[in-house]
Amino acid sequence: MTEDQVNLVQQTFAKVAPISEQAAVIFYDRLFEVAPGVEAMFPSDMTEQRKKLMGTLAVVVNGLSNLSSVLPAASALAKRHVGYGARPEHYPVVGGALLWTLEKGLGDAWTPDVAAAWTAAYGTLSGYMISEAYGSAQAAE
């Protein structure tokens, strides 16, 4: 990721943060719409899960300028997700739901540059997490 991409992700996330609860609802609704099979991995009451999602996103976004600061937590998170039933093929689906949610939440502020920055951020982090949880061969697929 370039410094400009990091800045774009951080600036646009600051616009989503005030509506984080709504954004989390939109995200999970979209995720369960496009991948109904993953819904069973989540609790029936999603209140805490939505808070965790937005809290984790905030930590990651704020840590993008010093990526090594968030990698240990990302590694631990990836390994915990294996226990919940997450598989490498779920990561692109989650990424798609995240980008779709951001596009809806940001409206006109969702530009091609913003889309590219978020795609790079998610790709970097998800690739690392897949590698940590399943090994580097899975991350390359």
Results as ranks from 00 to 15, higher is better:
residue 63 G to W: 03
residue 63 G to E: 14
residue 84 Y to S: 13
residue 60 V to N: 07
residue 84 Y to I: 11
residue 125 L to K: 04
residue 50 R to K: 13
residue 93 V to K: 06
residue 15 K to M: 15
residue 122 Y to C: 11
residue 95 G to P: 01
residue 99 L to I: 07
residue 64 L to P: 04
residue 57 L to V: 15
residue 35 A to K: 14
residue 94 V to F: 00
residue 101 T to H: 05
residue 59 V to P: 00
residue 39 E to F: 08
residue 118 W to M: 01
residue 46 M to L: 03
residue 56 T to G: 09
residue 134 Y to G: 07
residue 38 V to G: 00
residue 138 Q to L: 11
residue 35 A to R: 08
residue 99 L to R: 10
residue 55 G to V: 07
residue 45 D to V: 04
residue 100 W to N: 09
residue 97 A to T: 03
residue 85 G to T: 02
residue 71 L to M: 10
residue 30 R to E: 09
residue 37 G to R: 02
residue 134 Y to I: 02
residue 104 K to N: 10
residue 117 A to M: 01
residue 92 P to H: 05
residue 51 K to H: 12
residue 13 F to A: 07
residue 90 H to R: 07
residue 81 H to Q: 05
residue 77 L to A: 03
residue 111 T to S: 14
residue 7 N to I: 08
residue 70 V to A: 02
residue 68 S to H: 14
residue 58 A to D: 10
residue 74 A to R: 05
residue 88 P to D: 05
residue 77 L to H: 07
residue 13 F to M: 14
residue 8 L to H: 04
residue 43 P to V: 02
residue 84 Y to D: 14
residue 89 E to P: 00
residue 50 R to P: 08
residue 10 Q to S: 12
residue 73 A to G: 03
residue 33 E to S: 06
residue 97 A to F: 06
residue 88 P to W: 01
residue 125 L to N: 01
residue 125 L to E: 00
residue 88 P to G: 08
residue 137 A to F: 08
residue 7 N to V: 10
residue 17 A to L: 15
